[in-house]
């Protein structure tokens, strides 16, 4: 990675860090082992940020979708879907690259040296479709139809899959709150196992959770091709050197599609382009 690109990456990490600190700025929660209960939690944050994190000051959009769909009186979620549609239509997956705390964690984990980092593998492209299945099945269909006698569905994605919830909410809350120690069971063990696998994979593969599992990334991705702010390749300036494709850690080739569903708008391609052909 050249110096220019490295500087851009650290600038991005600074913004990711500042945003993560801001959206998890309820410091009393970390001291008391409680969560913020103020009115700001009416609002969703754009990234994957568990609302049961002791510091969280906003609501996780994926958790909020499941909460509304799974409630007995609503079966469609206009508020959160509208929020995600607005954010996606304006900036596509920019949120994934710049404003998601769990994206930042994976970015930093991938900086840990490992003998053999994996950039791609057989079945990689097919496996990336999995996040759409996770979105439809665990975030929408199960909370909507697999309900209790009161007509309420559980947040199945949060309950069985989300490693962000375990890292940001589960581990700190259990550590800080003694009353929860006795409630730990197989589900907690399962979620910690998933978190451990995610952490290990993040060291050898760039952002595996974002690529293969994240339902929020799946939602934002469909807006990438049509968002107001998006990349454009100037074909007159482009020298077809493929530098942009080589630096992309999400394995997107901007020459083929500058607004690919997998592009997280990190800006590496734009910064690395020797001909300044990407705008």
């Amino acid at each position: 990675m050249d110096k220019k690109n490295s500087a851009n990456e650290w600038k991005r990490h600074k913004i990711q860090t500042l945003w993560a600190l801001f959206t998890n700025s309820y410091l009393a929660g970390f001291i008391q082992g409680k969560i913020y209960r103020g009115s700001l939690k009416n609002l969703c944050v754009p990234g994957l940020n568990c609302y049961s994190c002791p510091g969280a000051i906003g609501a996780c959009p994926i958790g909020a979708i499941q909460a509304v769909i799974g409630s007995w009186n609503f079966k469609f979620v206009f508020y959160v879907a509208g929020f995600l549609m607005f954010a996606g239509a304006v900036m596509g997956r920019f949120v994934c690259g710049w404003l998601c705390p769990f994206g930042l964690i994976q970015d930093l984990l991938h900086k840990i040296p490992f003998p053999k980092k994996i950039t791609t593998f057989r079945g990689d492209k097919l496996l990336r479709k999995l996040k759409y299945i996770v979105l439809v099945l665990f975030v929408i269909l199960l909370p909507m139809f697999l309900v209790d006698i009161l007509g309420q569905g559980a947040p199945y994605f949060c309950k069985f899959i989300c490693p962000a919830g375990t890292l940001e909410g589960g581990i700190p809350m259990v550590l800080l709150n003694k009353s929860m120690h006795s409630a730990i069971g197989w589900l907690y063990a399962w979620k910690n196992l998933l978190l451990a696998v995610t952490i290990f994979l993040s060291i050898i593969i760039y952002r595996p959770f974002c690529k293969y599992i994240c339902p929020l990334g799946a939602i934002y991705s469909v807006f990438n091709p049509v968002s107001v702010f998006r990349y454009r390749v100037d074909r007159d300036k482009c020298t077809h050197c493929r530098t942009c494709a080589k630096v992309c850690k999400m394995q997107v080739n901007p020459l083929e599609n500058a607004n690919d569903l997998e592009c997280i708008r990190c800006g590496a391609c734009k910064k690395s382009c020797p001909a300044k052909a990407i705008h």
């Binding site: 969560i35 947040p155 309950k159 809350m173």
Partner: peptide, 11 residues
């Protein structure tokens, strides 16, 4: 969001 989501944290 203002109540600890026990499912979310794996409990």
């Amino acid at each position: 969001a203002i109540n600890i989501c026990l499912e979310c944290i794996g409990i």
